[in-house]
Design a protein around this nucleic acid. Structure first.
Lengths: 121, 121
DNA sequence: CTGTATCCAAACCGATACTG
DNA sequence: CAGTATCGGTTTGGATACAG
């Protein structure tokens, strides 16, 4: 009986699409990275500077996952020093629509949520 | 110098609405619960059965947080044994729109994501 | 029936040093 | 410049026993 972790289990054959998508995209950084790439491709360090408070570790990991899931592409230009650009893939572009709907809602309702929290505690 | 955890820090005064909202809603269960309440109010055990693989612990915690943030309401009916109903609050109802946009996208693109994953590994 | 308390494992994330 | 390896702290989540 080898133990299967949740990650391994969910990588393929996920029975519920929404959970599958959210498990991958609902972390601290994915949306932020996708948003940063909305209008133009970016290099590793540019992303690092633009997002500001992300560690290189997490930026690297999150980019890998987004690439693996097909949201973004990674292009290496043969130069010295190396130049790597990240850009939205087709899936990433199509994801922009629901993502921006969500962002807009968050902007509009953020205040209401803060008020609700303060009321109760 | 008391150490401030991320949770404490983010509870109020979050500088970025989208991160604030996603930090709370982007967990394993919130969307599922909100979706279950979409068409009717439900009791604790009904939710537990309907969702199936959630533990009582997590159902309880997640409901508390959703209530605190103003997404749902909790109504206790004075009976023996106690009867408690959870229902969408105004904020929860308004959240349905962006949420369903996201769910629809996930349904439509789930296959593409699975294919992307398999291609690369 | 509707939860909460406790304990433990897995996952997430950051700091930092190191590699090509 | 573009990462990866290691380590340790925090958070999330499940199982289960207990409480009103």
């Amino acid at each position: 009986m080898t133990k299967t972790t949740r990650s391994e289990l969910f990588e393929f054959d996920h029975p519920c699409p929404i959970r599958d998508v959210l498990d991958r995209i609902g972390d601290q950084w994915s949306l932020l990275i996708l948003k940063s790439l909305e209008h133009n491709a970016m290099r590793f360090n540019s992303l690092h500077r633009e997002i500001g408070d992300i560690s290189r570790q997490m930026l690297s990991r999150t980019l890998k996952r987004l690439e693996k899931d097909g949201y973004i592409t990674r292009t290496v230009y043969a130069q010295v020093p190396a130049r790597v650009e990240y850009a939205l893939a087709e899936l990433g572009i199509s994801f922009l629509k629901p993502m921006n709907t969500l962002i807009q809602w968050a902007d509009e309702n953020h205040q209401a949520i803060c008020r609700a929290r303060k009321r109760q505690n």
